Computed example of a mutant assay.
Amino acid sequence: MAKRAVHRRARKILGEDPVALVWCEIHKPIPTPPKDVHRAAGRNRLKPGHHWLLYVGAVVFFFVVIPIMLIDKLGDRLDRLLQGRRRRGPRAGGPQTPPEDRSSASSRDRARDRGQDPTNGIFDGDWSLTAGQLLLRWYGHSPNPKRLVMLARERVCIATSPRRRLSPTKADDFRTVVEFPLDQVRVEGEAGQPRGFATFQLRFTDGSWLEVGRLGEPEDADHFLRTISG
């Protein structure tokens, strides 16, 4: 469960004990908004920041590990090719694989495109409404992906830490970045969702909605979901 520092900070921000709170994240990539919409919102980042060690690891992987793997695989392939030629000897031609039917390939492409959700299933798709505007500024408040959703008696507050890294159980420097009175937002979710896959939605009075997941701290998550499903 979140440590006392988190609850103490939440109580200080809200001016009362939170009814429930939980750390969560946008659990899928934020879709790319139209350029004019993104520009009007201040061109905020649409992806979370990462620790510098992650970038170092990526560089080492792509420029050291992958070349070694490719060289090793190429060597094995050449060895098998040479061994096969020695066993069989030269052979002219061979059965050719008929070219793929372009019409069937394009049909599969269209079917795959139809199955794609341009919103990634995380919001209603209208960038001009409350959920879309919240998404456009989500990482503008902090590059850290974690957000603390706090339920109070008369409002819902979303807070974050300005740091790139934080411990959700000990963070005590988070601050509210946006809040909504309860007559403007409804928090919906089901209790007893599978651990690791639980999500909930913020549904606003203008008809827009936003879904978040990757709920942190099992006890807090369970209590939060029981509270909003009751």
Rank of each mutant, 00 (worst) to 15 (best):
N144W: 03
H7P: 00
V65Y: 11
A58H: 14
P194V: 06
E190K: 15
E25Y: 01
R11I: 00
N120G: 05
P145H: 05
P218R: 15
S104G: 00
F180G: 02
L148V: 05
H50L: 13
Q96R: 14
V59W: 13
F123H: 04
R203C: 11
D117G: 04
G216E: 08
D183T: 11
L70F: 10
P162S: 10
R43C: 11
R186L: 13
R175I: 03
F123T: 00
H7D: 04
I122M: 05
S128T: 15
P95M: 09
E188G: 00
G125V: 07
R112K: 12
G94E: 07
R88Q: 11
N144D: 04
L202W: 03
G57C: 13
K35D: 14
S128Q: 14
T176S: 14
V149A: 09
R114F: 09
R45K: 11
S104D: 11
D124H: 15
S161E: 03
S106A: 14
E179K: 09
D36L: 10
K35W: 10
A10D: 01
R43P: 00
A10P: 04
H223Q: 12
L151Q: 11
E100A: 15
D101H: 04
H38M: 05
I71G: 01
P98C: 06
P218S: 11
R112L: 13
R108G: 01
D79C: 02
A40S: 12
L78C: 05
L70M: 14
F204P: 01
R114N: 09
D109L: 15
V22R: 02
V187H: 07
P29L: 04
L215F: 06
S167D: 15
G15E: 02
S103N: 12
A131L: 08
N44M: 12
F123M: 03
P118C: 08
F123C: 02
D126T: 10
M1K: 10
D72W: 14
I71V: 14
D36P: 00
S208E: 06
F204R: 03
V185R: 06
L46S: 02
T205K: 12
C157L: 15
D113A: 15
E154I: 09
R11P: 00
R195A: 14
R80Q: 12
R45F: 08
D222N: 15
V6I: 07
E188P: 00
P34N: 08
W127T: 06
Q133W: 02
H27I: 02
H38R: 10
H7M: 08
P29T: 05
T205H: 07
R9Y: 03
G93H: 05
M69F: 12
